[in-house]
Design a protein around this nucleic acid. Structure first.
Lengths: 145, 145
DNA sequence: AGCCTAGTGATACTCAGTCTCAGGTCTAAC
DNA sequence: GTTAGACCTGAGACTGAGTATCACTAGGCT
């Protein structure tokens, strides 16, 4: 029985731990950049010869459910995925280098409370994603311009 | 030359004003609920017999570009669209009745500034969408439960 | 009115994501 | 350790949203 952190988080979420799921999670974790399912599948086949395309899609679903990965829905493109720490949080995506920074839920919470008070909505879920240039890409832009 | 508000906003955005575009915008505006392109197309054909499917997709793109409509990317489903007031803002979607409330950009701005200060990112775009139950659906839930 | 560009309709196409099903594997119970 | 069964996997067919192409049409400027 595997005891990697990913394995534990899958088990905690009531998901089975399989070689394929660990491989997908590992491949996802190696790159900090969001990747599409198709992209991941191609990279996975190099090391896990027989892995199926449908398996990658299903596995990503399971990883998202277990909180191990997070899905992005870029406009007009396929969904992309990034590895996640445990805990609910949001993301800052650099449009330059593709790097992803995590934003703690605590920063968002006051906004959610304010919104609930202002509108009478009971908010269950917030999708708060920011897009911009990270400090180093912004510096490069400034130097280049 | 048409002088409806939608026509003016299209012209201001450098987009041509056509009967099809006005029809799509009007059909979108009638319902406050987000609708998929496919859904809109089926509704449009009732009144604008010959309108093409591709035209509806292209038109929605143009309306989004002109700020007349806004696109949502619900997880695992087709993009949906809602009519928008002028100006940049965010949305609160009721998962019960599908109603959409607009959230003013001004409410979000302090969060964006705080985030920029905390992370060094230069934030260009924020996608802030909240999902929950509107006041009346929440009341119904409470009564039913 | 006439020209040119952009938009339109029809349809074929692409491609992300899902479904199905036979076979394999994880997990819990014994 | 063995076993049973639920769940996972791989392969490939399928679905359906969205795009590309192309001949034709219509908006908008002169």
């Amino acid at each position: 029985m595997s005891t990697t952190p990913v394995a534990e988080r899958l088990r905690a979420a009531g998901e089975r731990v399989t070689a394929q799921r660990l491989a997908v999670a590992e491949t996802l974790a190696i790159s900090r950049r969001p990747q599409s399912a198709e992209e991941l599948w191609r990279r996975l086949r190099a090391r896990h010869a027989g892995i199926g395309r449908a398996t990658v899609f299903r596995t990503l679903e399971a990883l998202v459910a277990a909180g191990v990965a997070r899905r992005f829905e870029p406009e007009g493109h396929a969904s992309t995925y990034v590895a996640c720490r445990a805990g609910h949080h949001h993301h800052l995506v650099c449009t330059g280098c593709g790097d992803v920074a995590e934003v703690d839920e605590a920063l968002i919470r006051p906004l959610v409370y304010g919104m609930q008070a202002a509108t009478g909505f009971e908010i269950d879920d917030a999708r708060v994603d920011f897009y911009g240039r990270c400090a180093s890409c912004a510096a490069k832009d400034a130097a280049g311009a």
